[in-house]
Amino acid sequence: MQETIKYSEPELITLLQKRYESAFSYVYQQYSGALYGIIQNIVADTELANDVLQEVFVKIWKQIHQYDATKGKLFTWMLNIARNAAIDMVRSKGFQNNKHNDELKESVYEHAGTTQIATDQIGLRKVVHQLKPEQKQLVELAYFEGFTQDEIAKMLQLPLGTVKTRLRAALIQLRQMLKNT
């Protein structure tokens, strides 16, 4: 960490809104790795993951005025931008990640000249994989693939209330697991 300055979050946001390169550079140094991690949980192709990370930071820069501190921390906001951008990328490319495919659990393998990442072997998705199968499936579909609860209910032929209840239970479980790591 070559940054010696520590910004408080309001300070950092003010400096970002003033378009200071130093603040943006700080955000990149501080958070690019964590955001890259979540992107790699969703986008298996390294080149595409790189493109998404680039797009995410350009969005953070362009949309910092839309950030509302009363709704959450800066990182929460950035994490959701990263997740949405990654899901959009996967959908626009018709990209097939290894959802439901438990056979493809090798960490990294070469495919058509691009590097593929086993998206469920790192980061948050690895934690999610420790959930019970029915909970894991719901979090996978909702969080990493971006389906709405309505879509999931139709897909799994379950009542919407059940999907909601199970998903919430899964998230509470996830919270406990995050606490313990």
């Binding site: 990149y28 690019s32 790795g33 964590a34 955001l35 890259y36 991690g37 979540i38 790699q40 790189n50 990370l53 680039q54 959450g72 921390k73 990182f75 929460t76 994490l79 790192i122 980061g123 948050l124 690895k126 934690v127 919270r175 995050l178 606490k179 790591t181």
Partner: peptide, 20 residues
């Protein structure tokens, strides 16, 4: 939020320099 951030930070992946 803090727990999620901590989890994400703990699982950070170094992006290639070309992205920056």
């Amino acid at each position: 939020e803090a727990a999620l951030e901590a989890g994400a930070m703990a699982n950070a992946q170094q992006p290639p320099a070309v992205v920056q």
